[in-house]
Amino acid sequence: MTRLITRLFPNLNDRFSVTSSQTKIYNCVAWAAGETHRWWWPVGDPRYYWPHEVARDETVECFVRAFETIGYSMCEDREVESGFEKVAIYADHYQFPTHMARQLLSGTWTSKLGALEDIEHHFLDGLNGSQYGNVVQIMKRVTSLNP
């Protein structure tokens, strides 16, 4: 599927590696939250997983609130920061959320591409384009991971 990923995300410029098999069990939001057993999305009917205390609206604000429930808060920069883990929210030109990525300890990013594979990619902007739009918000929380 590498060729398909390259075609869908031409800005990756081969600066990525595939790190899982394809699966429809979890999506990018779940992966960003550290989960691999369910699909996160704020739709009410049919009901997909969404933190119960957060409104089921497809807005960047609601995605921010969803990740605040698991300890994240908004921040300004995407650089790796010792002691913190970061996630990025992408949105299209209508500002509908489209994708989330999670930063690894190395400073590279990991993304689950819909029902495709997880990939590790060097730059967030590699996923910019017609599929996911652009990064609109970074969030961070104190990490529980050891370097």
Binding site: L8, N27, W39, T98, G114, A115
Partner: peptide
Amino acid sequence: DTLATSSVTK
């Protein structure tokens, strides 16, 4: 067309 889509709505 939707392989890379996370949005249930889309």
